[in-house]
Nucleic acid binder design. Structure first.
Lengths: 200, 200
DNA sequence: TAATAGTTTGCAGTAGGTGCAAGAATCTGC
DNA sequence: GCAGATTCTTGCACCTACTGCAAACTATTA
């Protein structure tokens, strides 16, 4: 029978994975994300290159070090949200849930800024976000019925974060959290009340 | 002195570029976008692999065959929009401008569906869209002042298109154009009037 | 037609990424 | 604590994407 959680094997895998993400992030910060090779990361984590690719499909995944638990929690938040809570409010809570953790472990600033400097990283982040998005949309559709609106709410929440981070780079005086809040507010109430379709 | 436009050299470059995108798209459709190699594309277009990379930085760019003229026209539309036209309305016109051309040349369905099947293609598209987005946001900020709102409007328009295409795949009975319109409408008026920030 | 400027190409090299099979480590039932 | 099954690691051979360089070629210009 398979040993559940506490096995040595399990722990070693977690260790290896942690060592790889740690090394990847550190080296990426030191040398710039595009100047790190998989060879270096593997060597720093003391495993073979081949093993690296057993853990991550792409170099970028190691640097991003995505936490699968975040998606789980987000889905849970959507499923257990009280009826009276509006959908975008739920999304706001999800965003802040993740944001809080990233801030508390101090990896947001390091990793976040890194991501914004590298198109390739950003790209892979978005790529892996696509699947999350799909799952979140499905969960939200389950709740509110309208699939178009559900998808728009989920993707808009994502866009709000991205826009906030980008804008924060050009105007560092405004806090990212405030920008996220402002973006959510705009999206909720409408980004253009004067819109008129079909003035062709 | 440099010959302006009609030179043989100029025409040959256009020809080569066209041959490459044509071959890339055709092969991608035949064999699936991830099973095409640059070798094949180059051979089909009767040029060397090295020449391929003189024209496109990535394989995906050839398949996407992005038309630089689209961005130019979009920027022009933003700059010359009448004062009374609301910003999202302008974005709607841009979207339909491109849509119309893609439909008329018949490449939307072929290329569009292809793109949606390949994460790699999708993300090269988004990646190159990021730069477009930046330029469009700047132009729109110029016009309406508020950079956050401008960025949100531009990115939301992009998201609307993406969501519409995705949704069209699962519910093919609704036309993509209608879905785009519905998405724009929702975004304009607000995706969640009951949103309340900070119910933590 | 000769000089010039721009294009194509082959070649050599770096790096990401995968399949396979052998060997090492862990886990299981006894 | 041991034998056998399971799982992980690793080296190796291989494919593909992509870049820099210098030589060969071709259109343009005077």
């Amino acid at each position: 029978m398979k040993q559940a959680e506490g096995g040595l094997r399990e722990r070693k895998k977690l260790q290896t994975r942690a060592a790889l993400t740690e090394a990847a992030l550190r080296l990426a910060l030191e040398k710039g994300p595009d100047n790190v090779t998989v060879d270096e990361i593997a060597e720093a984590a003391d495993v073979s290159v081949r093993t690296f690719f057993n853990y991550f499909p792409h170099k970028e995944h190691a640097i991003l070090g995505r936490n699968p638990a975040h998606l789980e929690r987000a889905l849970e938040l959507i499923r257990t949200a009280p009826d009276e809570q509006s959908p975008l409010t739920t999304m706001w809570m999800i965003v802040h849930d993740v944001l809080q953790e990233l801030l508390s472990e101090g990896s947001l600033t390091r990793r976040g800024e890194l991501i914004m400097t590298s198109p390739s990283l950003l790209f892979h982040l978005m790529l892996s976000s696509m699947d999350d998005e799909r799952q979140l949309s499905e969960a939200l559709t389950e709740r509110i019925g309208d699939p178009l609106r559900a998808k728009l709410i989920v993707t808009s929440a994502g866009t709000a974060c991205r826009v906030a981070v980008e804008l924060h780079k050009t105007t560092p005086d405004s806090a990212p959290g405030d920008l996220v809040d402002a973006a959510f507010q705009l999206l909720a109430q409408g980004i253009d009340p004067d819109y008129q379709k079909g003035q062709v």
